[in-house]
Nucleic acid binder design. Structure first.
Lengths: 158, 158
DNA sequence: TAATTATATTTGTATGTGCAAGCAACGAAT
DNA sequence: ATTCGTTGCTTGCACATACAAATATAATTA
């Protein structure tokens, strides 16, 4: 009674020292992975005063000046309200500026924003190098593809 | 200049309609997956008034009465301070209770907490069913293993 | 035994993210 | 042209999580 099976979908109880019953749960594992890798990301991107979502957003704005929040929301898989928050802070830091055009908002980089792009690319590279070496460079590529595919499948549900 | 390669580690630009340059970044993809799947989790677990971390924690406490925060921290891949916060709220909801023993804290389920366990198992099952059907039941198992393995690798870095 | 270091937990504070509701502008239909 | 639904963005609020510092107890060393 006390030790009933609570795992969602039975999986062949893969061996491994530190596995526990949650290791077979994607909800659990995906969040654990996200937290662990975000820690690396924050460390590297923190050196340029941003965290990774801000950095990605800034890249988009530099590459597509005048991009709208809704477009960013699609690209970055974040809700519009989150985009607003991110843009607000980047605006405070003088890295982007907003322009209202009808019901749309157009977002442009400032010069300081554009100037930051190489540094972002470097930080990005360091993040990739770090997790590749930890996870194993061979596995990373396939893992990333699968993870993204799964994320998209779930996102397409609505 | 403007369109330089900013992806961290070159990947064979996997085709796919909605892919963008971030799809090859595990930092990005892992977070996207975590958010998408957490949305499902919150929906199902929300029906019993918890979110998924609370549910997992409660399961641990029911199965190992007297478990300590540090043990929970290891099992759930969460920091001790987060555990404290989770336990606090479960205590407010009268689902667990804390007992101080020296420098340790022992956490026990209340009867209400124990009573909730079957409902948690059911919600858990529904979450698994939903993401399995979205992602494809065949892929889920392997994906989960790989994701967990990667999370553990990154976590073992400290 | 007293002083120091180590371990376990909690607090203060901050951050990223989202939902639901609001507002503003556009389009369609009467 | 006035109304009405729709779309795009923003705000108020809430929550999960973490870091750094504080506290309290245990262990070790002098």
């Amino acid at each position: 009674m006390r030790s009933e099976m609570i795992n969602e979908i039975e999986t062949p109880a893969v061996a491994g020292q530190k596995d526990n019953r949650y290791s077979a749960c994607l909800l659990f594992s995906a969040n654990a992975l996200a937290r662990a890798i975000t820690a690396i990301g924050d460390e590297e991107f923190g050196r340029i005063g941003l965290s990774y979502s801000y950095a990605y957003l800034l890249c988009e704005v530099v590459d597509q000046p005048g991009v709208t929040p809704s477009k960013l929301s699609e690209t970055l898989f974040l809700t519009p309200s989150t985009i607003t928050r991110l843009v607000e802070k980047l605006e405070l830091k003088q890295l982007v500026r907003r322009e209202s055009e009808g019901k749309k908002t157009l977002i442009y980089p400032t010069e300081a924003g554009e100037a930051l792009r190489p540094a972002i690319a470097e930080a990005w590279g360091r993040v990739g190098a770090r997790y590749s070496s930890a996870i194993g460079p061979d596995d990373v590529c396939q893992l990333t593809q699968q993870v993204f595919k799964a994320a998209r499948s779930l996102d397409d549900l609505d």
